[in-house]
Structures are given as C-alpha cells and as structure tokens.
C-alpha cells in the first residue's frame, strides 16, 4: 500500500444536474476536494446546498454528470453494477440518520450481513460480528432485534455494521440527527475513537456542532460549491462560544 498520505477520495470538477420536468437544476457546480486516508471530515451546509448530492457522489451512490470522482484512486464512473456493489460492500461503510438496521434481523445478523455478501463463511462472520459488537459495547445484546434497542444502541450496531468489511471510508449521513445530545455525543466519541484506533477515514454530513469539534477538516458547501475548508485548529475557538445546533 502506498504512503499514508494517499487520497482516499478525490473529486475533480464534479458537476451534477438534475432535470425536473423542463427545468435543469445544477446541484453541484464544480467541486474539487481531496480527502486523505485516516482523516475525519465533516461536510456542512444548509439543505438545498448540494450537500447530500456531494455526499452520495463520494459514497459511490450516484455518478456525476461531469467531472470525476475517485474512490481509492478508482474512477467510479468506469465501474459496472457488479463492481459498484463490490465497492459499496468492501470499501465503504454507511451510517444513516435513521439507523436503517434491517428490522427482521438481530443485531449480530445485521452486522454480519455485509460479510455474507462479501462471501465470508458463517462462522468467521459470526466471530467478527461479535468482535465488532464488542468494540461498540453491545456484545451482550447481540440477539436483540433493532426494535428492542434504543436509538443510540441501534446506531452503535449500525457503526459496527459499517465496519464489517474493514472499509477504507465510513460515510455517515447526519449520524446524530435522530439522537439526543448525550447519545449523539457518545456516537461521535465512538466514531472518533474508531478513526484513531482503526485509522478508518470518516466522512460525515452533519449539522451537529459537536461533530465539528472532533473533525480534522470541515468542508462548507453552499450553492453547489465548496465555500471554504476549515482546519481543526481554526474552528476550536468558535465551538466554545456557540451553544446547541444550527
């Protein structure tokens, strides 16, 4: 593996337009960004700024109309359906605002599902699943269904699931959006710990100021462009003076 400074995500002049009836809407107007392996990134921006579109692009969920998106130095536009599925399964872990655990499966089964897709044997996946549940502190609740778990616990299971195939990137879409302050903080701490210990790159779209506090860099998106990029050192002071959420 090349040096640690390798870009895990790189976009070049990414544009994306949607046609709604006769009107063409440009959601992204040329985005250039580079995210290095092991970084903790937050993407901030008001709704309608193109934040979600950019986020989907980075996550290999959508292809740009113009420009290139490279995930792990692979041009996403060149991949066929099978390769994209493989990329989502093995290279990217997703965490959602609404947790999105599969309701019919237990916590452990939810965590092992991506490993099953990846072709791991049942025994191996069970062992690794328990290991991951242990990391997020839920090993004793492995046989519970999502509905029998609290929001914070569900999100922990989702974090474990995101890590199932040792992805290069974990994408978190408003991971604290449906959680109260304290539980949200716990999830952020968990993500930060994993970022440090497992060196996994974390990219999250968020409104949560607590999230900014742990981020290495913050991309502010407005009107389909990167308005500014802030380093950790620049934002520390700000957070101390502000309360609550945007």
């Amino acid at each position: 593996m090349p040096g640690i400074e390798q870009n895990v995500v790189r976009t070049r002049d990414v544009k994306k337009s949607f046609t709604m009836g006769k009107i063409s809407l440009e959601a992204l107007k040329g985005i250039n960004l580079e995210i290095k392996r092991g970084e903790y990134i937050s993407i901030m921006g008001p709704s309608g700024s193109g934040k979600s579109t950019l986020f989907n692009m980075i996550g290999g969920l959508d292809k740009p109309s113009e420009g290139k998106v490279y995930i792990d130095e692979v041009d996403v536009a060149q991949l066929d359906a099978y390769e994209l599925a493989w990329l989502r399964c093995r290279k990217i872990g997703y965490i959602f605002q609404t947790f999105n655990l599969i309701p019919v499966m237990t916590a452990l089964e939810n965590v092992t599902l991506p490993m099953i897709f990846a072709g791991m044997s049942t025994d191996d996946s069970m062992n690794k699943g328990m290991e991951l549940l242990n990391v997020v502190g839920l090993a004793d609740r492995f046989h519970h269904k999502p509905l029998e778990l609290s929001g914070g616990q569900q999100q922990r299971v989702a974090v474990a699931r995101a890590l199932a195939n040792d992805p290069a990137i974990v994408l978190a879409d408003e991971p604290t959006g449906n959680l109260d302050l304290k539980t949200g903080k716990e999830i952020i701490d968990l993500l930060k710990r994993l970022n440090k210990e497992k060196k996994v790159t974390i990219i999250s779209a968020t409104h949560d100021l607590k999230m900014l506090d742990v981020s290495d860099r913050i991309f502010w998106i407005r009107d389909g462009k990167v308005e500014r990029v802030e380093e950790r050192s620049e934002i520390k002071l700000e957070v101390g003076t502000m309360e609550g959420e945007f």
């Binding site: 130095e73 991949l79 390769e83 599925a85 093995r90 897709f117 040792d166 290069a168």
Partner: peptide
C-alpha cells in the same frame, strides 16, 4: 482489501 483493485464478486 487489496487497495486500488476493484473486484466484482458479491454473493
């Protein structure tokens, strides 16, 4: 995870 190599086997 072989870096940079995208495969296609999902089961």
């Amino acid at each position: 995870n072989e870096s940079g190599r995208v495969q296609r086997q999902i089961v």
